[in-house]
Nucleic acid binder design. Structure first.
Lengths: 335, 335
DNA sequence: CTGTTAGCGCATTCAT
DNA sequence: ATGAATGCGCTAACAG
């Protein structure tokens, strides 16, 4: 792994290293011909400036870090692709890490990124996350960060979020309009803002239609969790007429169990999920679900971050709320 | 972003920087009490060694780069998780990039990784990839690389692959045993070894059963491609009795079109896919498919890489072939 | 056991 | 327009 350095190029051309350096950073005075000669020779020699050394002295890396809880589902990958489109175009490289929903891994990831001098961070918090002090410190120390999707209120940073309240409201309203009066909400992880908002939307819809608030059952964002909850309902003979799940995963897990136990969907029990997974439209019956503008979320986060990096100190954090859509499919159709 | 440096700690304690450095790299002689004092003080001051500076001098980063073509499907994310399990445990951090199936992006990613002095690389090639000269150079220069899944034969590096031939053979055999005599193979991208091997397995099964070789239709790894091909078959009235696709994506795309055109599956046309996607078991009818040991692939690749990093020069590239399973589901069941 | 010194590869100030 | 010298933060050889 013998790297060709700036010295090698300088020696070969009998110029000083600073001249070579100048050739690669066109802000300095340098004669056009020498510059071109240097660039050409460097190219031939296979020389590329060492970004490690560059980072050390310049305090910037042209790298952006993205940290997500997982990427087995398509949601986060799609967001990442959106962000990457913007970032690559501006000359940034994107480094991605996943926290596996673990708070500890998450912060180790952050440390790695910071230590590697990324110029900014785009983060979606792990479910487990409680301790936001570390993020406060980081923000205080002027590290540009944009949070998305999984955010917590009291962090003075830019955020890109979805209008969870509104769309949970519409999703629930849809079920109410179909005549359902006994709807159970499978919540998301309690500490996440988005879970709270989806729950609030669920309740608000009930109030609007003057229907007694539906039951809530704690549930995480996984098929297994949804399946477990469904099984309990069946065993306890507490099967509602419809389920509004805070995630497609839990909805699909629950649906599967109900189907296996002979329930017909949507006749015996209707389903609405949240956050359009790839699966939603392919399973049978297809799952009614709220879709989020994943790509747009990524692009918006990237743009916010770039803005913050460029304006540095005098930047005011802003929260951007994006809109979605309710895709009505068979799982909740009137029969 | 004012970083606390080794100097700050040294000054505070009236010791030299090298003593502080020693405290953080326990291979040197240092009195236990001074070491502990330094570590404690450093901790209080919020000092952490700057890995950038460390990299510059040490030529190692404890970072491993993973580059995959995409991660919207669950295959690559699962492999990454497998690799990450091994790597994290050994103290490595994992940086992930995606090439979007673009050769250019892929090699830019490689450059970024190399420039950032990752200690090793785990790569799955983009479909588009043709030019392997760059990889040859990289390998010559002693960068440890392990390829997986998407590999090309003549690269002198370790590889973790699936026995595509064998499982394509079994998949095809399964269809032949069901009585199908007119099977079409939707191939994968031509330049990939795995496409070639799946195709060979397809032919070999035909030979074993003394059935004339089935038709092959070029197709890429996407639902859209599968759908397009299916439409052409219908329009040309060349609908076979069964389809063996080189990917679940193309199988699912094709299935959808056939269903929309009134074909019953598996009665009118049977389907077998390849490389278990999350979708396969959830769509209707559920798709028969060859499943790969994703997590195992990741772990194996990581272990190979670590071995290579540790033994450095005297390492002999090896190719590890992993086994899979054929999950028979409704899409190909005898009726 | 600890301090002094040099240098990783580069950008930048100050000379010329 | 170019070269020499300094230092980013750190490790490692060499002294003592």
């Amino acid at each position: 792994m013998k790297h060709i350095t700036i010295k090698d190029v300088a020696r070969k051309l009998n110029v000083s290293v600073s001249t070579v350096s100048r050739a690669f950073n066109d802000k300095y005075d340098i004669r056009t011909e020498t510059k071109e000669l240097i660039l050409k020779t460097a190219e031939e020699m296979g020389y590329r400036p060492n970004p490690i050394a560059r980072k050390l002295i310049q305090q910037r890396s042209l790298n952006i870090g993205i940290i997500v809880p997982e990427f087995v589902n398509s949601f986060f990958p799609e967001v990442i692709m959106g962000a990457q489109e913007i970032l690559l175009e501006k000359g940034y490289q994107v480094l991605i890490m996943q926290s596996n929903e673990s708070w500890e891994t998450e912060f180790n990831n952050v440390k790695t990124m910071v230590d590697n001098m990324v110029d900014g961070l785009i983060i979606s918090l792990s479910c487990e996350n409680q301790n936001i002090e570390n993020y406060k410190k980081l923000i205080d120390s002027d590290m540009p960060i944009v949070f998305f999707n999984r955010v917590v209120e009291d962090l003075p940073a830019s955020k890109v979020v979805f209008d969870d309240f509104k769309w949970a409201f519409f999703a629930t309203e849809h079920l109410l309009v179909q005549g359902h009066r006994d709807i159970v909400h499978l919540t998301g992880p309690k500490n996440l803002t988005l879970s709270k908002n989806r729950l609030k939307g669920f309740d608000a819809a009930h109030r609007k239609y003057k229907v007694p608030l539906g039951r809530k059952v704690a549930c995480s964002f996984s098929m297994e969790a949804g399946a477990k909850v469904a099984l309990e309902m069946i065993e306890n003979k507490e099967v509602p007429s419809a389920i509004f799940a805070a995630s497609d995963q839990s909805a699909i897990g629950a649906m599967k169990v109900f189907k296996e136990h002979g329930y017909e969907i949507p006749k015996d029990i209707a389903f609405v999920g949240f956050s359009e997974s790839r699966l939603a439209e392919h399973i049978v019956p297809a799952l009614t679900s709220v879709s989020q503008p994943t790509r747009d979320i990524g692009q918006t986060a990237a743009n916010l971050l770039l803005e913050q990096i460029e304006t540095k100190g005098l930047f005011v954090p802003q929260t951007i709320v994006l809109n979605g859509r309710l895709n009505v499919r068979e799982s909740s159709m009137k029969i």
